[in-house]
Design a binder for these strands. Structure first.
Lengths: 301, 301
DNA sequence: AGCCATTAATGCTTTAAGAGTATTAATCAA
DNA sequence: TTGATTAATACTCTTAAAGCATTAATGGCT
């Protein structure tokens, strides 16, 4: 049995007239009569009770009609849905971001995406860079905002705007008054850094920059959350580095100072699997690109 | 799009191998490759991501597969159900019967029908003959146990076993001792009959038989229910006619006497619309026939 | 690094299912 | 009785789909 047969049957069942049904199907009456008869033979079921002058459905024909219409409807629905999914208008997208990404342009991107593709289910999870890479490996993630470097054989990376980090000092620290501050000024300080395994790239970068400035930093504590580091700075445990964008939300007992010359910096990036051909992911990247073009445009004015 | 395309697609999606899928479909690989490609062109959707060595589903392909399998399943289900309905194994049957029919062979017939066709929904309603005819007219009824005569242009009638009616007398009535009783013996009695409009045929029959016996019956009361009539006989209001099969269930203060010669009698019949081609109804009649053949066979032994 | 096996695609031919045309047969209404 | 209506039949024709032979590209294996 083919959908053709079902379409023919429904036309005849609707009109109860082979001639008119044939017309509706843009074919001739004999061809239609033959197809219906063939369908009945195949089913071994009489669907119509015909006289030479009239046609009506049998009981079985009535039942078949109901199902037939449902099948045709489902086929139509399937075609439509498949097309929408292929166009990226429907489906789902699993998104991850590091904690600090929420303080950046990311929320705006997500908002725009939701607006433009309301039928795409968004699943968002906060994950650190390392967790994101693992999730990508396990096919648990489609798009991630993270901090390179990562395994670029698996992931395609698009760098976003660089993010410079500033020094957090207690309000009453002597250096809080000095304005052009360089890394070498911090040589004798105690440092509160983030745990090495949470962000080895940045950690090593800091150590390396300090060594270039002629000292090895004295690390008194390792704390993951930036806010907590600022808190510890406030009570005089030491000094710390935090992202520039987080400084406004900081503690009142803390001042933030930009470093002149080499300073710790990270460049957030957006990642996807190389082998991912999801049109939704493509569209997400499209929006990311547009958002940045737009943002630059605004800045230029 | 045709079911063929869907079947082909599912085969390729299952095996992810054009050659093996073609084998499973009993066709050659190039033909299959071409059909899949045509399907993709028609849908304007890439369903497979092919390399020269491997095939895998795209996101849209995955979604389509799910729906495709469901469609194929539904088609299979529809064919099966339609066949069962055509064979009379599924569907519904609306059945009516008069009150007294429940005291006859009818329950046995229904029991056997339920046994043999458990997937047929039975809707049973008690209706008098007149109500049944109305229900048939309104297409509200498929099979009815009723008492002719009825409109035989609408209904096809199969008569069942004739049912003779007996006289109910008070236990201490003088005629209770006379054994060969005839209708003329009742000439001076008071009669409790059923209401004329409830069964005009039987009512007229009784009047007619009495007149043939040389008298016009003196009717003191009209009561529909046979049991109630027997009750009134017990307290001496008059005498009554009841169906032979009901006499066992009668009042202890009442005796029942068969009439010699002409006696009121009814022949229950089973009715269906002439234009009803439901296989279920046919099968019901089949069982009715078998049940009677069987019953006669038992009697003969 | 090169060769062979594997596998999907392409070009051409063949087949058969389905459609068209002309006609028939039966039924209902006037 | 006749004519209009309508589904079925007989035959021919068209075309979509299948088969066959071959190509092209890829990946594994020595």
């Amino acid at each position: 049995m083919e959908l053709r047969d079902i379409r023919y049957f429904v036309a005849v069942a609707d009109t109860l007239h082979f001639g008119r049904a044939a017309e509706r199907l843009h074919m001739t009456q004999p061809a239609l009569s033959r197809q219906i008869r063939a369908l009945e033979t195949e089913l071994e079921v009489q669907l119509f009770r015909r006289t030479k002058r009239s046609v009506k459905l049998t009981i079985a024909g009535h039942a078949f009609l109901k199902d037939a219409q449902q099948i045709l409807h489902q086929v139509k629905q399937t075609v439509s849905t498949t097309r929408r999914i292929a166009r990226g208008e429907m489906g789902h997208l699993r998104l991850s971001f590091t904690t600090s990404a929420l303080r950046s342009i990311v929320p705006e991107i997500v908002r725009e995406f939701r607006n433009r593709y309301p039928d795409v289910q968004l699943a968002m999870t906060e994950r650190c860079t390392h967790e994101q890479v693992e999730a990508f490996r396990d096919h648990q993630l489609d798009v991630g905002f993270l901090y390179p470097p990562v395994d670029e054989t698996l992931l395609a990376i698009t760098p976003l705007q660089p993010e410079t980090w500033v020094v957090a000092l207690p309000k009453d620290h002597p250096l809080a008054l000095r304005q052009p501050l360089t890394l070498s000024d911090l040589a004798t300080e105690s440092f509160i850094l983030h745990p090495r395994q949470e962000g080895p790239y940045l950690y090593n970068q800091i150590i390396h920059l300090c060594q270039q400035a002629g000292f090895y930093p004295h690390v008194v504590q390792e704390v993951a959350a930036c806010q907590t580091r600022a808190g510890l700075v406030a009570v005089g445990i030491g000094i710390a580095f935090v992202p520039e964008i987080l400084q406004d939300a900081g503690n009142r007992a803390v001042v933030y100072r930009t470093l002149k010359g080499d300073a710790p910096s990270l460049q957030m990036a957006i990642a996807r699997r190389h082998d991912d051909d999801s049109p939704i992911v493509q569209q997400f990247f499209q929006i990311v690109e547009e958002t940045f073009t737009n943002a630059d445009y605004l800045k230029a004015n």
